[in-house]
């Protein structure tokens, strides 16, 4: 679904930059946050992405904490989350955190785009 709004939460600026560039090239609208706290702040300020790409390992507020905070907030808990982590058991964690899926870093770009497409399709349907 072109034009879908994505929020990328990752403490690595290089990743945020590369992902933004690629996804924007693919026609997505992309916002970024450096950690969970930053993301929550943006969301509370009214940013409403269609999908959140969430790293797990971050300073200040990590992925888990963010997810808890998000789920605790009724205005935010409907936003789907795709985990994006170096953990080898990212799929397992995704189930735990009730995420729509998980991608293991370093991710194959085609796999990532396929996954996002699939999710956006399901969201659009």
């Amino acid at each position: 679904m072109a034009g879908m709004h994505l929020l990328i939460i990752d403490d690595e600026e290089d990743i945020r930059f590369a992902l933004s560039e690629i996804l924007e090239d693919e026609g997505y609208r992309v916002s970024t946050a450096a950690d969970g706290e930053d993301a929550i702040g943006q969301l509370r300020e009214g940013v409403r992405p269609d999908l959140i790409l969430l790293d797990l390992m971050m300073p200040r507020m990590d992925g888990r904490a963010f997810r808890e905070a998000q789920q605790a907030d009724p205005s935010l808990n409907e936003i789907p989350v795709l985990l994006f982590s170096a953990y080898s058991d990212v799929h397992q964690i995704a189930r735990e955190l009730d995420a729509v899926g998980g991608l293991k870093k370093p991710v194959d770009i085609n796999e990532m785009l396929d996954t996002i497409d699939r999710i956006s399709d399901s969201l659009g349907a």
Partner: peptide, 18 residues
């Protein structure tokens, strides 16, 4: 070591696509 791998791969993938 892995941290730069992710953007590197993303960049390469992006390059490949373009």
């Amino acid at each position: 070591l892995r941290t730069p791998l992710t953007p590197l791969r993303l960049q390469l993938g992006s390059l490949q696509r373009k």
